[in-house]
Design a protein around this nucleic acid. Structure first.
Lengths: 198, 198
DNA sequence: AGCTTAATGGAACTATAGTTCCGTTAAGGG
DNA sequence: CCCTTAACGGAACTATAGTTCCATTAAGCT
């Protein structure tokens, strides 16, 4: 009988390798990054790393799959602006974090090089957006924003300026930028900007 | 006497290599990209490429420097919303273009791996933002938006959602998304969202 | 036109990323 | 507790990215 073995050692190896990969991505980006060194840091034979993942891109894709599973809890402040501001600050804090910021930049960079990685990244953000979408739905229910407002678009409108800053400027997003992004999204949403034209 | 030789052959080599680099970046991303193949496509000895640029990142930085020099003309429609919409559509068209879209993604990816490349990218976007900032200044003069509004922030607010879509979703920005981004930025700007606190 | 030398490019070389082989370890069923 | 075999890991091997050497070409000056 051919049983697959997800238990004990394999799982330990996977988590050690994914952790090492995340660390190295955060430290030196995904450019000159080789699987052998990841294996060395994870104290795992490089043969194993090459066999199970094969390429840096595939490893990143796996890391993204794992990251998509761990969801972080949504805040509920009772108002759209409050919720969006909480979200914006959370994202800004993540992108400003010395490990997480470079890590996210590296993940996005990896996705531009490999189709499978890109899919994993898209899935990750789809999940994240879906987690926060309810706060817009509640705002619709409360009558803060017009019915028909696209929740995902509002959530993305909050994150977009923060990521844009991270990637294209020398100044990562702070709380000022975060609050501004949240306010802009809330204002636009109230005005019905995120209601798709019929 | 030690004269530098910017003329004829050197310039021809540089432009051939930069063009080839841009093509290959657009086609296969900046991941598995080696200078030898770029040289081959540019019909330039690989020794020359290695000597003049040394690394992929340095070559991308040079490409960005060149791209920052060629400015594309700004539209002037007479209203902030009109100008921002024109800008948004221009950016969206660029990011949707089969060559330019992947190229910009690759440039951003490269910048996450190398400090010098990141600086070149930041400079590039600073230039682009500065080119469009006047349309916000005109809007301030016309009284469409409050005095003190940060022109750069408004321009970035227009581009951000488009780039965010390019990088984190499976659906590149179309004119619908572009118009929405422009409208959202205009609405928020009118409301004084981009006026820094006191 | 002729001279000097910066810049190029082919070929041979080195280093490092990635693969194959095979003996060893331990997960999981009997 | 033992047996089977999926998964691991060290070592030797191959492939490809990157470097060095030197002969050749052509800017740019007189």
């Amino acid at each position: 009988m051919t049983t697959t073995r997800p238990g004990g050692r394999s799982a330990r190896v996977r988590s050690a390798v994914l952790r090492a990969a995340g660390d190295m991505l955060a430290e030196q980006g995904f450019g000159h990054l080789d699987l052998a060194e990841i294996g060395r840091r994870a104290v795992v034979g490089k043969t194993t790393v090459y066999r199970r993942w094969g390429t840096v891109a595939a490893l990143v894709a796996d890391l993204l799959d794992e990251m998509a599973e761990e969801s972080l809890p949504r805040t509920d402040t009772g108002t759209l602006l409050g919720d969006l501001t909480a979200n914006a600050r959370l994202v800004a804090d993540t992108l400003t974090d010395p490990r997480q910021g470079p890590l996210f930049a590296a993940l996005i960079a990896s996705a531009t090089c490999d189709e499978r990685t890109a899919q994993a990244l898209h899935q990750f953000y789809e999940t994240r957006v879906a987690e926060w979408a309810p706060c817009v739905e509640q705002a619709i229910a409360r009558g803060e924003v017009p019915a028909g407002t696209d929740p995902g678009e509002v959530i993305r409108a909050v994150s977009a300026p923060l990521y844009y800053r991270l990637l294209t400027t020398a100044t990562p997003p702070d709380h000022t930028v975060a609050d501004r992004a949240a306010t802009a999204a809330a204002v636009a949403a109230e005005r019905g900007v995120y209601v798709p034209a019929e």
